[in-house]
Design a protein around this nucleic acid. Structure first.
Lengths: 114, 114
DNA sequence: ATTCAATACCTAAGAGGTGTAGGTATATAG
DNA sequence: CTATATACCTACACCTCTTAGGTATTGAAT
């Protein structure tokens, strides 16, 4: 994936993406998240499993997600859902990131000084 | 500054901001960059010196910036400018970051699935 | 039969950017 | 004479991410 050279994430954005996806979908498993991100970005963004699983585990350890494992077609799937705290935190972190991105854009798209 | 608790940068965004500011202004010194970012973002974003100076030094070591020191009002200022390579790299990195931000927004603003 | 791709989870080690917390020094306002 | 703004710097720790593995099942292709 990523025909172009760079696919590196910006530190901190991954967990917020996970939170955002779970706000929309209620219940997702790891592999599904990687595919959903690829779908949404037309293959331009891939999240690596080495980043995803630790992020998921941390979110769970922090009490924002709960898990439920199911066997589907002979393979184990670990479904993640937002806890009540997770819903609240998700809203806050998404707002925070959005605000940061707006500020970042103010810098990136600054009007040329004459 | 930042009355609110969080002011942390997304890893990798700082050097691109520096490059972007220098595309606009030709010549800037460190302290000026911190002030410019505050101005542009109405005080909502502050870049810490502990991040700024190492970033500036790395950009210089990588050949993207050159420096010129001047004494102004009794204080030393170290002016940074884009090298020829720096101009090229700046364009590339800004495009890369912009592309990443668009993809990130695709995830953050995804339409609710019905 | 065997091999490869996709599905599905995981971890360890290391790199690298950032924040915290210092340090030095000058000019100016109170 | 002290505090604030200006102006530079570094060391250390933290934390995310990438790289590079590992295990296992299913289904398609050879």
């Amino acid at each position: 994936m990523n025909t172009s050279s760079n696919s590196s994430l910006l530190k901190g954005s991954l967990s917020v993406m996970i939170l955002r996806l779970l706000e929309d979908r209620e219940r997702m498993y790891g592999y599904e998240i990687t595919q959903k991100v690829k779908d949404l970005t037309a293959g331009e963004m891939s999240i690596t499993e080495g980043a995803l699983y630790p992020a998921l585990h941390k979110l769970e350890a922090d009490g924002l997600l709960t898990t439920e494992t199911q066997i589907v077609d002979g393979r184990a799937r670990k479904y993640y859902s937002l806890t009540k705290t997770g819903h609240t935190e998700a809203a806050g972190r998404i707002a925070e990131l959005s605000s940061f991105l707006e500020n970042l854009n103010l810098v990136l798209k600054l009007k040329p000084s004459l």
